[in-house]
Amino acid sequence: MSGTPAEKSPLARLVLFMVCLSIAGSLVAGVHWFAIDLPAQQARALHPPGNGNTELFAACNICMQNCEFDSDRYGCEMTCKLLACGSPDP
């Protein structure tokens, strides 16, 4: 037998190529996250979310408290949920 190195099979070369491609993709994704996504997330963290409307919650709570003295309490609460609270199921 001669000492010539055996050539790798096409399947082994394909697997090696796919592993190298996945490593390169992970590196590109990490750089993208660090350079673009992380600063955008930090910029948004400085502002409160838009759904934190405390005036809406205060009006909803007042309306629901007033329903305690109404003769049709459940009808009153449904009206409050629809009009003051902003949804039928808060």
Rank of each mutant, 00 (worst) to 15 (best):
L11G: 11
A45E: 10
D37Q: 04
D89H: 15
L14N: 10
M1G: 11
S2W: 08
C67S: 02
V15F: 15
N53A: 10
W33P: 00
C67Y: 04
C67R: 03
L83G: 07
S22G: 11
I62Y: 08
A24G: 12
G50L: 12
L21V: 12
L16M: 06
D70T: 06
M64K: 01
L46P: 04
M78N: 12
P88D: 08
S87Y: 13
N66Y: 09
L56T: 09
F17K: 13
D70I: 06
V31S: 01
S9D: 08
Q42M: 10
P90R: 05
C85F: 11
L82K: 14
R44Q: 07
M64G: 00
L38H: 07
E55P: 07
V15R: 15
Y74V: 00
A29H: 08
A12R: 13
G3I: 00
P10D: 04
T4Y: 07
T54M: 08
L82D: 12
F69M: 08
C76T: 02
D37M: 00
P90L: 03
G25A: 14
C63T: 02
A6N: 01
R13T: 10
F69I: 03
N66D: 11
P49N: 05
G25D: 08
V15W: 14
P5W: 03
W33M: 03
M64F: 07
L16E: 15
I36E: 05
L16V: 06
A43L: 11
N66K: 09
L14Y: 14
